[in-house]
Design a protein around this nucleic acid. Sequence first.
DNA 1: CTGAAAGCGCTTACAG
DNA 2: CTGAAAGCGCTTACAG
Lengths: 358, 358
Amino acid sequence: MDKTSDPTKKIRIVDVARMAGVSVGTVDRVIHNRGRVSEENLRKVKGVLDIVDYQPNLIARSLASRKQYRIVTLTPEAAPGEYWKDVHKGIGKAAAETTGYNIHVENFHFNQYDAVSFDRAQTAMLEKEFDAAVIATLFTEPVIRLSRLLDKRKIPYVYLDSNIAGQNQLSYFGTESYDAGAIAARLLTEKIARTSDILVCRIIHSGENDSTQIRNRKKGFCDFLEKNGYAGKLRYAHLRLNDDAYNFEVLDKVFAEPGKIEGAVTFNSTCYIPGKYLKAKRLSQVNLVGYDVTGRNADMLRDGVVIALIAQRPEYQGYYSIKALYEKLLFGKRTDKVNLMPIDILIRENIDYYHNKF
Amino acid sequence: MDKTSDPTKKIRIVDVARMAGVSVGTVDRVIHNRGRVSEENLRKVKGVLDIVDYQPNLIARSLASRKQYRIVTLTPEAAPGEYWKDVHKGIGKAAAETTGYNIHVENFHFNQYDAVSFDRAQTAMLEKEFDAAVIATLFTEPVIRLSRLLDKRKIPYVYLDSNIAGQNQLSYFGTESYDAGAIAARLLTEKIARTSDILVCRIIHSGENDSTQIRNRKKGFCDFLEKNGYAGKLRYAHLRLNDDAYNFEVLDKVFAEPGKIEGAVTFNSTCYIPGKYLKAKRLSQVNLVGYDVTGRNADMLRDGVVIALIAQRPEYQGYYSIKALYEKLLFGKRTDKVNLMPIDILIRENIDYYHNKF
DNA sequence: CTGAAAGCGCTTACAG
DNA sequence: CTGAAAGCGCTTACAG
């Protein structure tokens, strides 16, 4: 069969060139608007492109192209077993997969409890040249300022963790924090008496406000309680990250107050902190719910101290952030602007199957 | 900088060839075990490959390769909104992704309630030439026979849905059905009195036995109850697929018997069938738990008739089955022999985020 | 068994 | 502005 007229054959640049009576170089220039093409040839090539369905072979394109794309990420630093480590894993996986496709990923980290360190990391990042960025949105205002800067430079960026309205992010990957908060309330209210109290733990660090995500979770939590006729009291405890002695003292005080506490919750990934206390004091009547499958949280769940963990596929968030930018840079594709992860509920019986492998 | 010694540079076939003192053709033959390589050169090339981290450029490979691979799948047919439709979606997604890489997927379907239709679909499939297969294992014995045949032809195959021991499947993708059964028991026992009864519904079809998966879920369910001091009775109802009148009659009888039913469960994906009854009769004291996020089940969950659905990422099962074969065919990679999906718990508050998109 | 060469469909200098 | 040619990293006949 005549190969050039096989209708099932994909048409290539050389086919277009032949049909237009020009060289492949000229066709390439037209396709990519690189200029330096005469009026006449432009007309001829466009004429052909209008009638044939030319679909560039992207595989060939990326093999031939020597253009390198650099993606930077700006996320909290994390030790093994911590929440953000899973996000990093996802980013790393995507980076490894795309590295053959002219994509380079460079990661910048900050201390999630320290806004100053965010500025520092951001500065280091901005000193580099890059074509796209992934930004964890923990510090709202600084992220908005950074977004303006990137807008000006026409650099696409993706938000991670929680979304910020009114910005020009290419995409957001994360959960609907408000509903994740409602789920914690639902899991607790199923277990406790309508009138019993709930302990709400917050981690205090150097005068910071809660992140957007934590605020939203809390709002979803409280709204659910209100809508469902909860009649107990929320009792607050402000705890510290690595200070058991202090935390035990604070919690001793809270539990000494009048009122029966049957539920407990933390809105960040540190439910192992009150968990440690509940376990030590054998307060098994207190149902603790937390967020994120970190090593310590999962152990507490297996142990029966935590009754449920709510998770949001951090590895996927990292992975798909990079993938979205990769698709944008290489193929000009746009992903959905908002990409909400499933909200996973882990209990003792399914925790061991939750490996983020798929 | 000397390009050949730039450590950040990915090493290519030509680099390996140079280091081994052979041609790229020889390296290619070694990498792909194509034979026709002398002992000595084999040794030299393997020696180099052992010390350098050669990662083939898949883009270049698929651009150059003219070999086409055919994968067949043998799964139950499904209407939109049904369980197996999600598996098909995953298969389709993987097929679309790999189609540029010389992979062609052809799907064969059978009626999951009719063993004869399995034989028919299998026959149609075996008439084709193919390089690998995905097999849903609903009918155990026929699948074992088919496996023997494929073994003889040295065609790799992947199992889907439930695993069968003692076979030569390349991989299995699915859940640990036993534990998925235990989870249903856990969700129910949290809600009902220790001594109340549980309605167990089974769908009857033309003299079939339950599938392996359903048997295992049931075993996990019963074992959990026993271990946790459940003191009520399991009350069985045998229902039909599209026969509400009949089902209502059967269930009327069951509920007329003495004993308080507070829980209900189905071990396949049709909990909407008893759900319909419970809703019509306003039996809101009965806590119904089911499997799989099908359209009708999800609606029942949103409606409050079903309290929880247990799901197993059907889309991923389909997707990764194809991917596993793709990796095997193109790169000779072996995936894990057993790949257990996370077991997801869906309630009213997180069902809307469970889209299997990621 | 072995290597040199052509080719996959594109991009990219480069000479004219 | 234009086209011929080299090259991206592989695979695939093919001659020896």
